[in-house]
Design a protein around this nucleic acid. Structure first.
Lengths: 117, 117
DNA sequence: AATATATATGAATATTTGCTCATATGTACT
DNA sequence: AGTACATATGAGCAAATATTCATATATATT
């Protein structure tokens, strides 16, 4: 077994590093989690999602509510769709967007708990 | 009162827009929330935080566990510190980092629920 | 004081990202 | 078929970001 001695005796805690590494999830999971949080990590997307917590809305409504161009909203909605955070139904020319499930709400509640503390 | 008619009758749902706007949190809260999630939205920081879920670790340990340079880890730790996601205690030359509270764990659990579904 | 070590910080750089503008797609209506 | 409208998409650009490298700071040891 290779000794870990890049730092002095007191720095690298060999057992700790090994123990943590054993528990560590896969690289893939880390990346997926980061992607999810990154999607939530933009003011425009936060506002879109928060708007949708109230009720389903079309792109045009969202644009009016949050004060962003329809194109910008559409681009952001694509990201949220890809991550299955929102879904939509079509009614004629209009697409009504809504939250895909209750995960976003739960994450927002947890997040707000941290932010407003 | 100003009529909202940028789109045709069927597009902008005036009552919906007004109702949602009334409920909408402040711009500041949206930005704070986005900042929090953005901090969680990077693979390196996800790995750092996940490592710390196991036990407290020094910078050097974290670097070894996640396979990133100590400088990179230190830079990311600064961001996590600023957002009060991690704290540290000093023991001589070594700084031991740990999670600031249980918010991160809760957010990760919620996030994983969405990702692994 | 001088040296070594653990970590922090600043500058520089390459990549990513969010927006705008122009254009395309899909649906409804005539 | 042709027009209008709601939304999507692609290219281009400015701003943000994560890393590396060099240097600074803080603590311990001699």
């Amino acid at each position: 077994m290779v000794e870990f001695d890049r730092c002095g005796i007191n720095c690298i805690h060999e057992e700790a590093v090994k123990a943590v590494k054993e528990v560590l999830f896969s690289e893939d999971v880390a990346i997926s989690l980061a992607e999810l949080f990154k999607a939530l990590g933009d003011p425009t997307r936060v506002k879109i999602l928060f708007s949708l917590m109230t009720r389903e809305l079309c792109v045009c409504d969202i644009s009016a509510v949050i004060g962003a161009s329809e194109s910008a909203v559409s681009h952001q909605l694509k990201i949220l769709r890809t991550l299955r955070l929102v879904k939509y139904r079509r009614d004629g020319k209009i697409l009504y967007y809504s939250l895909a499930d209750d995960h976003v709400e739960k994450l927002f509640i947890q997040g707000l708990e941290h932010v407003t503390e």
